[in-house]
């Protein structure tokens, strides 16, 4: 669902620590300067949300994310084992006289309740996380998802968080690092994915994974090179060979690292970067517009 004027852009990285969140928040701050109050930043890294450290939002609303999990009435249950046989996720087991459920593994599919011949399984709500909404001091609409402590299944929380994309706004989605399910579930609802990488052989390997993930999902992507100047030209060569746009190069610079450590974005501490960041978004818009005229 491409929104031609204000595409939703996700920011991802093949691994953590590449400056992904720094770039995502900097982009949001810069865009908010030119379109005040029209920018939304969504932190989808529900296992370790950290965009709030750079944006300092006031959280105004909290909504629990709930899933249904099975609850077995042991008096009715005959220990027939059907539920355990049919569960694709090994989230319920019948071990001799005991019936155990593993809510962390449960996909809330309802199959166990459906197959139980005596109706011993009820589906009850369980909170797995929370979606928080608020506003940064400069007026960026802020959303973040947070997985409950000890819970392992990020999917329902990631999806509930990504669902907060407002297509009438400029939405920047900060995806969790890596290329596993939570990353894919985050970038799925965007129109374009910006991949942040470092120009090292390791960074290149992770970038290739991320590019392949985007291509499998048929999601256009471009690259931002952070700490440019260190390492090797491998990332640049790869992008040239594959026809992937390099949208921005952020140089290896001590003052940037120091500002980041103080909890400031690029756009906060280096006004000269604002235009470049806005240009990145404009380039993405232009690219998507040319794509849509090509395909329609």
């Amino acid at each position: 669902m491409l929104h031609a004027d204000r595409p939703t852009v996700s920011v991802a990285a093949g691994k953590g620590g590449t400056g992904k969140t720094l770039f995502a928040t900097s982009l949001a701050v810069a865009l908010n300067e030119v379109q005040p109050g029209q920018v939304q930043l969504i932190d989808c890294d529900v296992e370790e949300p950290n965009a709030d450290i750079l944006l300092h939002p006031q959280i105004a609303e909290r909504e629990p994310v709930k899933v249904l999990v099975p609850e077995v009435d042991l008096d009715t249950c005959t220990r027939c084992g059907r539920c355990a046989q049919e569960c694709q996720f090994s989230a319920i087991a019948v071990i001799r006289d005991a019936v155990l459920t593993f809510p962390d593994l449960c996909a809330a599919c309802g199959v166990c309740a459906y197959v139980c011949p005596v109706g011993a399984i009820a589906e009850v709500e369980r909170q797995v996380g929370i979606v928080e909404r608020g506003m940064s001091p400069e007026g960026i609409h802020f959303v973040q998802g947070r997985l409950s402590v000890g819970d392992q299944r990020a999917t329902p929380v990631t999806k509930a968080t990504a669902r907060m994309v407002d297509v009438n706004m400029i939405s920047i989605l900060d995806a969790p690092p890596g290329t596993a399910c939570p990353m894919q579930e985050s970038i799925e609802s965007s129109d374009y994915c910006i991949l942040v990488t470092e120009p090292t052989p390791f960074g290149l390997a992770n970038l290739q994974d991320a590019v392949e993930t985007c291509r499998r999902m048929e999601l256009p992507c471009g690259v931002v090179i952070n700490r440019d100047g260190i390492g090797t030209p491998g990332v640049t060569d790869y992008c040239t060979a594959e026809g992937i746009d390099i949208l921005l190069r952020i140089p290896q610079d001590r003052s940037i690292a120091e500002a980041y450590a103080r909890g400031e974005t690029l756009a906060h501490s280096f006004p000269q970067w604002r235009d470049e960041l806005v240009d990145v978004y404009d380039a993405v818009c232009k690219f998507l517009r040319s794509e849509s005229t090509l395909t329609t």
């Binding site: 355990a84 996720f89 090994s90 989230a91 087991a93 019948v94 071990i95 001799r96 593993f102 392992q152």
Partner: peptide, 19 residues
């Protein structure tokens, strides 16, 4: 059955042992 499964391998193996 859990040898190739992503998560839940321990539960699947326990179920097999019990069965």
């Amino acid at each position: 059955p859990g040898a190739l499964a992503g998560t839940g391998a321990g539960v699947a193996a326990a179920q097999l042992v019990a069965d």
